[in-house]
């Protein structure tokens, strides 16, 4: 039982990261109806900007409490990626607004490759160590369970971010406009919603969340490299599909489920008879199963195709 709980703790902190990335996919899909392939690479940029920010700020803010320092780095890299997301949308996707979806998809793959290989050019291909923003300590009082303060920080910060996102989407005019746009773009435009601003805002918000996920991911695993975004990005996409693309609670739940399932499959690989090497295939098997049996996902609405 203890082992199961232990796996659950590890799975949830990984799942929190997937959930944060998945939200970006889902929000962008909501307003533009396309899968932003480059989202996983924005995640990578988030990790690297976090690394550089913490290096620059460390001497300046040496006497600050470490959690506050971590929050500053987090906010800084979220802001950077938010701007990056907006710039990518303006330069690469906006000229293609009315084009076939395939064209946009290929462009997104191009943006993804551009970020990856520019990253390789700038940062080198070898994995780099991520500076620990918070000194890793084991939390006491959990009996035989082992959890670190980093995991606690990740889960708390994720909960706060998700709460903030909920407020933005449900309680602000911008959130209202986002929801209107995802319901019916033309009608929203006729009602006076400035679609360009809303789309930019959505990209910024999604990219900022991906950056937060990247800081958490890098804090948990401590190594970053230019291609680190590919697999988490694809898995987060699976999480978004699992929850129902376009649904915010779906992306959160899907991310958590995926993180837990993946960790459990690896943790119980002997019992299940699945070698731990198959870890990366788990997400894709889930994806194929969900698309076969419930393509709309757990929380998604069934969409009819109109001719």
């Amino acid at each position: 039982m203890n082992e199961f709980l232990q796996q659950l703790i590890n799975g949830l902190s990984l799942g929190a990261v997937y959930a944060l990335i998945a939200l970006g996919y889902t929000m962008v899909y909501g307003v533009l109806r396309f899968i932003n392939f480059a989202h996983g690479d924005v995640f990578m940029v988030g990790a690297f900007s976090g690394m550089y920010l913490s290096r620059w700020l460390k001497p300046l803010l040496a006497h600050w409490p470490e959690w506050l320092f971590a929050v500053v780095v987090l906010a800084g890299s979220m802001a950077f990626c938010g701007v990056l997301g907006i710039v990518i949308e303006r330069l690469a996707y906006k000229p293609l607004r009315e084009r076939p979806r395939l064209t946009v998809l290929i462009t997104a793959i191009g943006v993804s490759l551009l970020l990856e290989y520019s990253g390789q050019l700038l940062f080198g291909a070898a994995p780099r160590g991520f500076p620990s923003l918070i000194e890793s300590r084991s939390l006491s009082g959990l009996g035989e369970l082992h959890a670190t303060n980093i995991q606690a920080f990740v889960l708390t910060a994720t909960a706060l971010l998700l709460g903030g996102l909920h407020l933005i989407v449900m309680r602000t005019r911008m959130g209202l406009a986002m929801r209107a746009l995802s319901l019916n773009p033309t009608a929203a435009m006729l009602m006076g919603v400035n679609t360009n601003v809303v789309i930019s805002f959505t990209f910024g918000l999604g990219s900022a969340l991906a950056a937060a996920g990247a800081i958490f991911y890098a804090s948990l695993y401590q190594a970053i490299e230019p291609f680190m975004g590919v697999l988490p990005g694809m898995k987060a996409f699976v999480a978004a599909v699992l929850g129902g693309v376009g649904s915010l609670p779906g992306a959160m739940v899907g991310g958590l489920i995926l993180g837990v399932v993946e960790t459990l499959v690896v943790g119980y690989s002997k019992v299940l008879g699945i070698p731990p090497g198959y870890r990366d295939a788990v997400a894709f098997v889930i994806l194929i199963l969900i698309l076969l049996f419930k393509p709309s996902g757990l929380f998604g609405k069934q969409q009819r195709e109109k001719v």
Binding site: V241, D280, A283, I288, L292, P295
Partner: peptide, 25 residues
Amino acid sequence: LRLKGDYLAIVTLGFGEIIRVVIQN
């Protein structure tokens, strides 16, 4: 077959990766 456009792209990508992981193991 039931999928179109971007979904199909991701699923074929997923299958490609599964084939690779299976060979790797």
